[in-house]
């Protein structure tokens, strides 16, 4: 395991832990952004450049800003509560059990056991992805377009102010 991978993995997981454990919601969102950037760098390290840049554009650029907006919009009425979590130990226990199960499956898997000879990082051109999106993956692309339109309209309708006097 090389150093860059270790650093990236540590930063990503550490930021995720901080995002889930900190008390201030704004700090949580900032650490979420750090974790998402770390994930984008992991994608780049894996050779999936397009996914890495999409991750930066969509998650860091759009979703993080959206979450910050939601945090600021929902801040007003909340009194700062003493407890930030319900039954934190049982939740952590469940998560630890899930991780133990996953880690056991990963470490015990025979097909992952033999370390494959380090293949060169595959070059995946954006042209190939574009041809895939307009060729074999055109139906999922259309469905995602429809889903995004529906989600946008739905988001506007749900968040619209309720009519006065209803």
């Amino acid at each position: 395991m090389d150093l860059i991978l270790a650093l990236l993995a540590g930063a990503t997981v550490g930021a995720a832990v901080a995002a889930m454990a900190l008390r201030d919601v704004v700090h949580c969102v900032l650490f979420l952004t750090v974790s998402l950037i770390g994930l984008a760098l992991l994608y780049l390290k894996l050779g999936a450049e397009f996914v890495g840049f999409v991750q930066v554009l969509v998650y860091v650029g759009a979703v993080a800003v959206l979450v910050v907006f939601a945090v600021l919009l929902t801040r007003g009425g909340d009194a700062p509560t003493e407890r930030i979590a319900n039954a934190p130990w049982s939740g952590a226990l469940v998560a630890a059990a899930v991780f133990a199960m996953l880690a056991r499956a990963i470490l015990g898997s025979p097909s992952l056991g033999s370390p494959s000879p380090e293949t060169p990082v595959p070059t995946l051109s954006v042209k190939a992805i574009g041809e895939g999106l307009t060729g074999g993956y055109v139906l999922p692309l259309q469905i995602v377009a429809l889903l995004l339109t529906a989600a946008m309209i739905g988001g506007v309708v749900i968040a619209m102010r309720e009519k006065e006097g209803e």
Binding site: A16, V29, S35, V67, T81, A92, A95, F99, I106, L112
Partner: peptide, 30 residues
């Protein structure tokens, strides 16, 4: 390969713990 899978499993567990226990709805979404 195993490193990536372990990182992924760790991230999943951390997210699960947060989604299960936090009281703020935004953090649950995070």
């Amino acid at each position: 390969m195993k490193t990536y899978l372990l990182v992924s499993a760790l991230l999943f567990s951390v997210g699960l713990a947060g989604a299960l226990t936090r009281r703020n709805a935004i953090i649950v979404l995070v």
